[in-house]
Design a protein around this nucleic acid. Structure first.
Lengths: 220, 220
DNA sequence: TAAAAAATACTCCTTATGGTGTATATCGCG
DNA sequence: CGCGATATACACCATAAGGAGTATTTTTTA
């Protein structure tokens, strides 16, 4: 009576590396008759193996930080191989890039883990239909981006100063703090300052990430 | 009588940041009547300014390690703006990549600083004509590369193992030693070992350089 | 099957890096 | 003229990173 109004319960798969959280979700969501848990996995690889082996799911609740393939990368893979499968990102991170990357990877929605259980349930139901549940705080960030002139959404301009751009180029060329300081005739501490500013603007925290971002987004 | 057989002396510019070396070269080479020193500069920028301002030179002796624009980068720029200008790289480095990069940048020759003065003189003379002076040890490296199956000369294959390739990808993704170890369920020391092996194979010594090389050469 | 290569793991050590806070001089724009 | 942004610089700290050497176990392959 309650599990079969319009084609039966929604089959849901969960990917979450922390066992307690995973089991908690499995239990909580399983209580509702409209949802059937078809599997709960600790890694994206396990889910993919499950689906490859004939396992079925309409919807996937996907954590971002996972051992092995990340949730975002997994979403990309799932969308390629099983295009009808809807992926709902469920994470504690409000990171700008993670949100946009998830959406670009084809996620149906992006929900934060602090969402109340009953609201979570409704969002899952809506995602199984045509809805795209987005946590309010996440939604706000996206809207802000759009208002800000759709910058971060399309080309990506980080408003680096001229000096910072020079330093950016040098980082890409593999210079150390010391070499940078010598080249520009400034103190090592200043070179460092510039680099830290760049980190903030690009939202990264290592030279390796700077190099990647600079090259991938053509900042140089 | 000695400075004007066939169109006069060779006009030579020197770019070398160490003042003593620069002055030494200027003096030594100036002793020979077949060469006229048209300028000696501490940076590539100065040479470019000199040429832009109407200064003339047929040949440039270029150091690689310079403050500001590197000798290789400068060579590229010079070849674009003054295609008839011949650049002779004069450096202490026998680094594989530096040699190949210099050649790709359009250098006429690549001479090591330990070359005897009289030999250096002859090589400069020959470079002003049709010659491409290459120090014997440098020549040997190039020939070795060709013999080895022209690998490093064209596509660039670093024969990374499967494991190393995985780790390489992770470095590009900005993972730290620790994160890497966790992801692959190996000890941090092992992750480090893999990374150091990758450094040796790619001939770099920092994550930033690995990311750059990986992205630029499509290793990922 | 014996030798070579790869993957694993440890130690010890030095230096680089990233994070945070403070402070000053200067420049540009209203 | 003054505010805000930029560039400069320093101190202090914990951790990451890079280098070198040794050693054991697996895998590959000649």
């Amino acid at each position: 009576m309650r599990a079969a109004q319009q084609g039966g319960a929604i089959s849901l798969a969960i990917v979450e590396d922390e066992k307690e959280v995973r089991e908690g979700l499995k239990y909580l969501l399983g209580l509702d008759g409209r949802i059937r848990i078809s599997g709960a996995f600790g890694t994206a690889e396990e889910l993919i193996a499950f689906l490859s082996g004939g396992g079925r799911a309409e919807l996937v609740l996907m954590d971002i930080h996972l051992p092995g393939i990340s949730g975002i990368e997994a979403t990309r893979i799932l969308q390629e191989r099983w295009p009808t499968l809807a992926v709902l990102i469920l994470t504690i991170f409000e990171d700008e890039d993670a949100i946009l990357d998830s959406i670009k990877a084809g996620a149906r929605g992006y929900i934060l883990k602090n969402t109340r259980p009953d609201a979570l349930l409704e969002q899952i139901i809506s995602a199984a239909g045509e809805g795209s549940p987005i946590s309010p705080t996440v939604a706000r960030r996206i809207l802000e981006e759009i208002r800000r002139g759709s910058r971060a959404l399309t080309p990506a301009d980080y408003t680096l100063t001229a000096r910072e751009l020079e330093v950016l180029r040098d980082i890409v060329n593999g210079l150390t703090y010391k070499e940078l300081a010598e080249k520009h005739h400034i103190a090592g501490s200043t070179a460092k300052k510039h680099i830290l500013h760049i980190y903030q603007k690009l939202n990264v925290n290592s030279k390796a990430e700077v190099v990647r971002k600079a090259l991938e987004e053509g900042l140089i």
